[in-house]
């Protein structure tokens, strides 16, 4: 079996009396596409932020790319990519400038940035638009670009926090093609979503309800266990029991 890239053991985050994530435990292997499902307020974003070093856990243990989330956040940051639910490129910079900036922040050298940029633009069908301001691109393109930028420095893991909000199904499909390509290259994908068709694309999914992980398996097994035709039905069975809502 391949190496473990993310592991969580009873990872908990409390904000005062509120327990945002409650003793979650799981492991994610290299190159896996791990779906992290849950209704709004279930604690997905909190969990992601702990893995990225943006939040300190209250208790429990976790490692990302082999580094401890309490003491080695700097090392973690070197090895991950991150794309948040809200769009995060600079609108007043061009496509090329955005790529250069983020790649530069991760310490890539000029030459390799240049070479990779050409390939990336071709892949995204943006070869003729390197000098277009990002604000004039359609939303779907922006999101594909944001994802490509997040994995430009070839991280071990990329965390995607609801990356496909607000785009049409076709663009979402294209987005997932990019995710598959990245996974094939060995990049572990940790993705939160509440589109259940996307859940079907994942190798394994976990379903989080009120801060706890209630189910964790492959989509196919989950459907079998809960005798459901689709992930949507599986998810609804859990969502009905949830107390926290929007």
């Amino acid at each position: 079996m391949s190496e473990t890239v993310i592991s969580a053991d009873k990872l908990t985050k409390k904000f005062g009396d509120f327990i945002a994530t409650n003793e979650i435990s799981f492991e994610v292997k290299k190159g896996e596409i791990f779906g992290f499902l849950g209704a709004n307020g279930a604690g997905k974003t909190t969990a992601i932020r702990m893995f990225c070093g943006l939040l300190l856990p209250s208790s429990g243990a976790a490692t990302v790319a082999g580094f401890d989330v309490y003491r080695q956040t700097e090392k973690i940051k070197q090895n991950i990519g991150y794309m948040s639910q809200k769009f995060s490129l600079y609108e007043d910079l061009t496509v090329k400038e955005n790529i250069r900036f983020y790649a530069g922040i991760y310490g890539m050298n000029r030459q390799s940035i240049k070479e990779k940029t050409v390939g990336l633009l071709k892949q995204l069908n943006l070869a003729s638009e390197p000098n277009t301001l990002v604000k004039s691109l359609p939303l779907g393109w922006k999101q594909k670009l944001a994802f490509s930028v997040a994995i430009f420095h070839e991280p071990k893991v990329v965390f995607l926090d609801e990356p496909t909000g607000g785009v049409d199904p076709i663009t979402r499909r294209e987005f997932w093609n990019l995710i598959y390509q990245a996974a094939e290259r060995g990049i572990t994908i940790f993705v939160t979503t509440h589109y259940m068709d996307e859940a079907e694309y994942c190798n394994r999914v976990s379903i989080m309800v009120d801060g706890k992980i209630e189910a964790l398996d492959t989509p196919r097994n989950l459907k079998k266990i809960f005798t459901a035709a689709s992930m949507d039905e599986v998810f609804l069975q859990f969502a009905r029991g949830a107390k926290r809502g929007e």
Binding site: C52, L54, K77, S84, K86, S88, Y90, I105
Partner: peptide, 13 residues
């Protein structure tokens, strides 16, 4: 405001 701060905080900068 434009959320790039989050990405920068996650980066090794």
């Amino acid at each position: 405001e434009i959320n790039t701060m989050e990405v920068l905080l996650v980066s090794p900068l």
